[in-house]
Design a binder for these strands. Sequence first.
DNA 1: AAAACAAGTTTGTATTACAAACCGGTTTGC
DNA 2: GCAAACCGGTTTGTAATACAAACTTGTTTT
Lengths: 100, 100
Amino acid sequence: MKDNQPILEVDRIIHEPARLLIVTILSMAEKADFLFLLNETGLTRGNLSTHLSKLEAAGYVNIEKSFRGKIPQTLCSLTPAGQEAFEKYRKQINQFLKRT
Amino acid sequence: MKDNQPILEVDRIIHEPARLLIVTILSMAEKADFLFLLNETGLTRGNLSTHLSKLEAAGYVNIEKSFRGKIPQTLCSLTPAGQEAFEKYRKQINQFLKRT
DNA sequence: AAAACAAGTTTGTATTACAAACCGGTTTGC
DNA sequence: GCAAACCGGTTTGTAATACAAACTTGTTTT
């Protein structure tokens, strides 16, 4: 068989709940550091790290590393592509769920 | 580490796009057969089959097998638990996405 | 100087979604 | 009347991935 056409095609990168959370926060905060995201999301550090990496690899978030005194700091922000993808996702899901 | 509390906790059974599609269709049609779902969703038979099994195992859909003449027929419908879970999911996602 | 801590990253594992192969029966072609 | 194609699915094999736990690199504390 090879009858394969996707119907409800949604961006899996954003669809994942943990990342949806992260992206939503970033869409409001416009630049947040690792520890802030850690608190807000309730994720473990490990999972936050990997989800951020995945978002970065997708080109959806920008990650800049710096130092706050002697302590490393990771700042994250949505890229334009990320904002766009998020908006698109929201529209899709809203529209899909609207038609009761 | 063991600081683990889930924040955006969404029903993964329903969250999966293919199953969200199936459940949405069932919520409107109230009893649909395999071939109908196959057309509506655009899934392959194999994937439709496994997703239905998963929904059945979760107690969200009821599957009855019968014959239409000599041809087997699989009828699917949402259980009350399935309807409830779907409604809950919709509310959660809508509410989450609402707060821009 | 050793032990605890901070801020992340990497690794190991179990779950999964999807495609492809399979299967039992039925119809069609010859 | 029998082989080949078709129907309506189910099972299997595999690659991706989400999460927890272990590790790392550097910094305070004691």
